[in-house]
Design a protein around this nucleic acid. Sequence first.
DNA 1: GTGATATGAATGAAAG
DNA 2: CTTTCATTCATATCAC
Lengths: 174, 174
Amino acid sequence: MEPQTQQLTEDGGNNNEAGSSRQSITRWTPTNDQLIILNDLYYNKGVRSPSNEQIQMIRFQLRQYGKIEGKNVFYWFQNHKARERQQMKKFTSDGHVPMQSSGLVGNGNGTNWKPEDQYMNMNNKYSNISNIGQGVSSAPASAYSAGMIAINGQMGNYGGYGSMDMQKSFRVST
Amino acid sequence: MEPQTQQLTEDGGNNNEAGSSRQSITRWTPTNDQLIILNDLYYNKGVRSPSNEQIQMIRFQLRQYGKIEGKNVFYWFQNHKARERQQMKKFTSDGHVPMQSSGLVGNGNGTNWKPEDQYMNMNNKYSNISNIGQGVSSAPASAYSAGMIAINGQMGNYGGYGSMDMQKSFRVST
DNA sequence: GTGATATGAATGAAAG
DNA sequence: CTTTCATTCATATCAC
């Protein structure tokens, strides 16, 4: 009834948690585009518990749409998976579960993902797929232009060669 | 939150009746009887975070008074506990906390930190790096290629090395 | 009708 | 991975 105007915590860099030894007072809020990618990875690509490397790549991909850190990606997948499972057990829908339409996921190891078209039902939020960060592709991105990240887009045969220097650890509050 | 001044729906009766599709799409509103039971469980029985099975039992019990699902019970306890703490935190030592805490559960924390470094153990097993795409299939039992992961699965080239020895360290403990 | 408040629902972050 | 905490969004109800 009323667009809640999701306050996209756009990048912009106003976020700040360093210095504060408190609990994170800055909570990452995924943008619509980020959610789309994350859900695509989760449901269509079968990503469940990405490794560190994968997290970094995903982060890099999502960064174009807003500020994001590795831990955000990590927590997102962890929560998403846990809650999907929780929903199955705890909220055993006697009626229905007003969340994602998951359900098949029987894979628990990632041994091999069975490609299957499943559309996530992002009926939750409002489609605000707009030019959120039009031109956000800042400079730092070019430094890592290894071109081997094919998370969502198409990638012919560039063959990156991936000895890039990725951050090895993202720590919160040094 | 105020004291349990059950100001619930003044309709007193049951605006939520099982089978009534009246407000099924709206959020659950506990009936008076349900609130009595819930509060009894909370204050007299000391229930704070019921397990899945407990939730189901509670749900079953409450169901005779109105439509209810497991998540409603779950969220009720979550919110009730969180908000009780929230108020307690607000009146840290005012001496007048409008709540009838019975003091069960002996919860003494609230501001208790654990001065301990928590290193998340991202145990990447030796093999079986969940490959997310159907294109990259790592060697079964040789070296684990974690350098580059084609999340899309459209990679025509396989990556070399990346940083394999990453140790993600969430140093989050305050 | 509008705003304040109570509270159900959701989820990021973190602890266990 | 499971469970809990904290913060925030969303909405029903009440006060005006």
